[in-house]
Simulated assay, not measured.
Amino acid sequence: MTPAPTEVLLFTLNGQRYGLPAPDVRELVRAARLTPLPRAPAVVEGLLDLRGELLPVLDLRLRFRHPPRPLSPMDHFIVASAGDRCVVLRVDRAEGLRVLTPDEWDATPRQLPGVGYVAGAVKLKDGLVLVHDLRTFLSEAEALELDAALAAPQEPEPA
């Protein structure tokens, strides 16, 4: 059983609030142009070159069944750990860190069917916020497909 986080990073996507455990968050950066990654699973939007490190950007809109939207300069990128893998999440807005009190954390959603990558929920005065576990975000098949796509030689983009 995963211990309850003491802090979560709250973010919005398509008008809904979500969270990530703070220890999984490496940094926040402004949205930037992505490079397509051929043969990557559909949940990968592309690659972000972050100071020379190529990181896969996961498509939360696709995963959470929100309508697609083009990349905007107003979007935020959350650089986070998904187990041993570093990934980037494109979100509409990162709201900031929230220190949790014991009565705000609820681990029950993790035990409900169909909520695969949910670590739990934060009960706030203005509603429930699902907190996601990035270690389970990619299926095993998606992780293998992503590894193969990252290992494949990349063709240069046309000028």
Rank of each mutant, 00 (worst) to 15 (best):
P56E: 10
V118K: 06
D49S: 14
R17S: 09
L97Q: 13
V79N: 12
E7Y: 13
G19R: 11
A22S: 10
E53K: 14
Q154M: 15
P36W: 09
A143S: 06
L71C: 05
A141L: 00
R135F: 10
L10H: 13
D49Y: 08
Q154K: 13
R98W: 13
P21M: 03
C86I: 15
L60S: 00
A149E: 11
P102F: 08
R110C: 00
H132I: 01
L130W: 01
G46T: 07
A42H: 09
V91Y: 06
E45K: 04
Q111K: 10
T6M: 11
E155D: 03
V8Q: 00
F137R: 12
P38T: 07
L10K: 13
P153C: 01
R98F: 06
W105A: 05
T6D: 13
R110F: 03
A141F: 06
C86M: 15
E7N: 14
L138G: 04
V131W: 06
P56A: 11
L134D: 09
R98P: 09
L50V: 11
H76A: 00
A148W: 12
D147H: 08
A159Q: 14
K123D: 12
L48Q: 02
K123Q: 15
R61G: 03
A31V: 04
Y18W: 03
L13V: 10
H76P: 09
T101I: 10
P113Q: 05
G127P: 06
E45I: 05
P109H: 02
L71G: 02
R39D: 14
I78H: 05
R135G: 11
T101Q: 02
R135E: 08
D106F: 05
L134Y: 05
P38F: 08
M74P: 15
P38E: 03
E104F: 07
A22F: 12
P36L: 05
E140H: 04
V115G: 14
H66E: 15
D84A: 15
E155C: 13
R98M: 12
R51N: 05
L124D: 13
P68N: 00
E142W: 03
D84I: 09
L89M: 03
P158F: 00
A149S: 07
Q154E: 13
V29Y: 06
R135A: 12
R30Y: 02
G116K: 07
S72Q: 01
G46C: 06
R33D: 11
T35Q: 15
N14V: 12
R61D: 03
A121R: 10
E53C: 07
T6A: 12
V88W: 06
A31Q: 07
P3I: 07
G83V: 02
P156K: 05
D75S: 04
R63F: 04
V129E: 02
L130Y: 00
P156C: 09
V43K: 02
G96P: 11
A151E: 06
L97R: 06
T12S: 07
L37V: 07
R39Y: 13
V88T: 04
V79R: 00
D103Q: 08
R33C: 12
W105I: 04
P38W: 08
